[in-house]
Design a protein around this nucleic acid. Sequence first.
DNA 1: CTATATTTGTGCGTATGTATG
DNA 2: ACATACATACGCACAAATATA
Lengths: 76, 76
Amino acid sequence: MIDPEGATPLYEQVADELERRIRAGDPPPNRVLPGELAIAQEFGVARGTARHAIAVLRARGLVITVPGRGTFVAKS
Amino acid sequence: MIDPEGATPLYEQVADELERRIRAGDPPPNRVLPGELAIAQEFGVARGTARHAIAVLRARGLVITVPGRGTFVAKS
DNA sequence: CTATATTTGTGCGTATGTATG
DNA sequence: ACATACATACGCACAAATATA
């Protein structure tokens, strides 16, 4: 699922996978995404990489991050 | 005692010092360790660093943490 | 039963240092 | 010089569990 040796950056691979899930309705709109640590652990990457992936989703308008609360799936 | 400039990470230095105390019987088995905030203040580190140090002690099997109660010295 | 205080759990934001390609 | 990735460390805020008044 995640290929550390691949040409595309890890944070992009993680972002793509998370986007795939969101579009599949997991998690649904207005629900929180797993936290940075949870994502980092699941994908076996550093927290910074998980953060970077979330930033990509934010740039894509898929999620909204609220400091101290979490990252929510934007209502499409 | 704690060297912020040292090569070894702060959380490890704190963990080592706490282990030294535990082995010296302070605190004794089944007694609670100082809380994360107390440890952080005493050593002049952030709470996250104190948490990390406690996690190390837990991994070493020296302490057991109970949410909402505290961290206890494991009976050796 | 409710309220409060304490402690751990979680989550985010940020900064710095190191290593690699 | 730059991008990627990891590790460490700081801070802040809120949630959950526990104990007690």
